[in-house]
Design a protein around this nucleic acid. Structure first.
Lengths: 153, 153
DNA sequence: CTTTTTGCAAATGATTTGCATTAAC
DNA sequence: GTTAATGCAAATCATTTGCAAAAAG
C-alpha cells in the first residue's frame, strides 16, 4: 500500500481516498521518484518548473505533505535546518555533515530490532527507523585539516 | 575532552580557547545538565530566568551553539520543527511522534559499527550515531484508534 | 454544478544578525 | 583599558495560512 511507484499507483491511491488527481501531484511525485538523492521543497519547485511553470511553493509543500501522508514520500529532517524529501522505501541511513549541512544516503545494514521492541514496550508504535550519523563529510574534512581541538581561535 | 560535566570543566574549556567565562554560559549549561529530558531554546530561557532575569533568546541560542561546539551539549533536531538540546553523552536513541511532534529518549542497545565503517569508507568522519524511530506515541495512538489504512477521509 | 486545489500575498515562528552597551580579563 | 559577550530590535528564511480564482469530478 505505501509508496506509489507509478503515476497510476498514485492516481489510484488518490482516488481511493476521494482526493483529486492533479498534474501538480503527478509531476511532483514523478520528479521526486526519478531523482537521485534528496530534494528540498525549493529544489522540487525548480525541477517541476519546466513541466509546470506556475506551481507555487505552497503547493509544493502541500503536495509533499500529502504524499507523505500517502506514504509515497518520506520527509527527512536534516539536523540543521531545511527538510529534504525522498521516495526511497528500502532501509537506508543518513550521514549529516555539521560543516556544510549536506545530507547523504548511506547503504548499510542495521538491526533496529531491539530498539523497536523497546519502543513498543513503552506503548510507542514505530513505523520507521533510521540511523543518522553526524560528522564531517570528505569535502569539509579536506578543507579544514584535522580540526585539532587546541588550534581553535 | 567533550562534554564538560561541571562548572569548572566548562570554565576550563572556555579559558583554554580564550573564551570568557560568563554567568550566562555557566547557568545555561547548568540548567541543561541538571534537566531530565530535552529542552528547546525557549524552555532553557524560561528555566534560566529565575537565576538571570535578563538573559535574551539570542544569547541562549548563541550559548547553546557555543556549548555544542565545545561538545558539552548536543542539538537534536526533531523531524518536525524546533530543535531540542540535551547534555547526554551515552548512547541512546529517540522516538518521534508524527502526530504530536513529541521527542523522547529511548534506552536501547544498538551496534552502528557496520554503518560507521561504511561511512568512513566513503570518506566521512562520523562523531555521533543515533537512531530515530518515527511513529505514533502511546497518547496519540490511544486518541485515534487503529488508523486503518482504508478508513481515511 | 459542487467541492477540492491552486496560486498569490501575507502571516507565522524559530533562529540569526547588527549594533551600542556592558562585563571579562 | 581592550576585546569579547550581552541585550535589544530588527531581519531572515523556511514553512503555513487565508482567500478568490481555476480545475477536477
Amino acid at each position: 500500500m505505501p509508496s506509489a511507484r507509478t503515476d497510476e499507483d498514485l492516481a489510484g491511491a488518490l482516488r481511493a481516498r476521494g482526493l483529486r488527481v492533479t498534474p501538480q501531484r503527478l509531476v511532483i511525485h514523478r520528479v521526486l521518484r526519478d531523482r537521485a538523492g534528496h530534494a528540498t521543497a525549493e529544489q522540487v519547485l525548480r525541477e517541476v518548473a519546466p513541466a509546470l511553470p506556475n506551481v507555487s511553493l505552497p503547493t509544493v509543500y502541500a503536495t509533499l505533505a500529502l504524499l507523505e501522508r500517502l506514504g509515497a514520500v518520506r520527509r527527512v529532517s536534516a539536523p540543521g535546518d531545511r527538510a529534504v524529501y525522498d521516495t526511497r522505501t528500502d532501509p537506508h541511513h543518513h550521514i549529516y555533515c555539521r560543516e556544510c549541512g549536506a545530507v547523504a544516503d548511506l547503504e548499510a545494514p542495521l538491526d533496529p530490532g531491539t530498539a523497536l521492541r523497546a519502543a513498543e514496550r513503552v506503548g510507542f508504535r514505530p513505523d520507521w527507523a533510521e540511523l543518522t550519523l553526524t560528522g564531517t563529510c570528505a569535502r569539509c574534512a579536506a578543507a579544514q585539516p584535522t580540526r585539532a581541538d587546541t588550534t581553535a581561535k
